[in-house]
Simulated scan of single mutants.
Amino acid sequence: MSTEALHRLVVNGDVCGSGRLGLRAKLRMREAMYGVFASGFDAAGVGERSFRMEDRGDGVLVALAPDVPSAQLVGPWLEGVYQRLRQENEGRAEPLRMRVAMHAGPVAEDARGLAGRAVDLTCRLCDSDTARDVIELADRAPLLFVVSDSLYHDVVAEGGACIEPEHYRKARVSKKETDTEAWFHVPRLPYPPLPAPERPRVTGVHAARGPAPEQGGGADHGGSAPPPEYAAKYHFGHIGGSNQIFDGNTFNGDFTGVRDTASGPETGSATEGGGR
C-alpha cells in the first residue's frame, strides 16, 4: 500500500458521555453510532469504496477519497447524520449525542491506518475543551459540528445544499500543540452557545488606573506605565488594609489619595496609622 500523502477530507466523530455506559449499553451505542455514519454516507451518495474508516471505540475516524467533494460531506452528509440521530433518540431516556469535526489536508495511509497533520488537527478539534463546552451548553442538542478555519472559508462559506454558513460561529481551540480558530455549528440552532472567553486578571497598580490595552497594535509600554490614552490629570486611589504597597510607597491602614499628575506628588489622609 502506498504511503504517499494525498489531499483528503478527514472526519472524526465521538459520542458524548460514553464513559458512563456499561458494556451492553456501550455495544448498543456503537451500533447506533455506525448506523448514524452510514446514513450520512447514504445521504451524500458516498459509497464504501470512497472512504477509509477506523474504529476509535466510542468514535470513528474517516478519510474520504480525494475525488469526493467536501461540500457533499459538509452539506448532505451532515444533514443525514442529524436526521438519523433524531430517529435514534426517539424514546431514549438518555439521548445519543455526538461531536463531529472536519478538516482537509495531506493524509497518508498504510496498513495500520491514517496519519498526517490533517488527521491530528481533526481529532483535536473534536476532542477540544471548546467543543466539549459547546455541546454541554447546547443542552440536549444531538449534534455539534466543528470545521477548521480553512475548511470553513474554502467550503462552508460558499454555501450549497444543506450548508448554512450564517449559523456558524468562530472560537479559539487549544489542544496539545494546537492553538487555532475553528467554526462551530449546532444544527437547527441560529448559532452555537459558545463559552465566554476568559478575561485576563488585572492586578496591582494597573487595576487602579484602568483596563490594560488590548493586545496587538500600539506601542509596548513594558508594564511600567499606562499608555498615553489612559493618562489623566488626576489619579484617584483607595487602598484597604494595612501595609499596602501603592506606587512604590507603603501605607499602614486605609488610605484615600488624590494626585495631580501634572504638578506634584499624591496627597491624602490615612484613616488609621501613618504612611511611609
Rank of each mutant, 00 (worst) to 15 (best):
H221N: 12
E198W: 05
P228E: 00
H235T: 06
Y234A: 03
R209P: 02
F251R: 01
R199Q: 14
G210Q: 03
R209G: 04
I239K: 07
N243A: 13
F251L: 07
N249M: 14
Q244D: 02
G237F: 05
S263W: 08
F255P: 01
F236S: 02
F236Y: 12
L189S: 10
A262E: 15
G253Y: 09
G216L: 12
E229L: 02
Q215Y: 08
V186S: 03
G257W: 00
A212F: 04
I245M: 09
A207S: 08
Y234I: 01
N252C: 06
R201M: 08
P211W: 05
A219D: 14
G248K: 06
P227L: 06
G241M: 08
V258R: 03
G237K: 01
G253L: 05
F246L: 13
K233E: 00
R259F: 00
H221Y: 15
A225P: 00
P200I: 12
V205N: 00
D254Y: 09
T261C: 05
G204Q: 05
S263A: 12
A208Q: 04
G241E: 11
L189T: 03
R209K: 01
A231W: 08
G223W: 02
A207E: 06
F246G: 02
R209Y: 00
G237C: 06
V202T: 15
A231H: 15
H206I: 05
A208T: 12
G240T: 11
S263F: 06
R188Y: 12
R201W: 09
G237A: 09
H238F: 15
G222M: 07
V258E: 01
G218I: 07
G257P: 01
A225I: 09
P190A: 10
D247R: 01
G264F: 00
Q244A: 15
P213R: 06
A212D: 02
A232G: 08
R201T: 09
V202F: 01
G218R: 05
R259M: 08
R209N: 00
S224P: 01
P227M: 07
L189P: 05
N249K: 13
P265W: 09
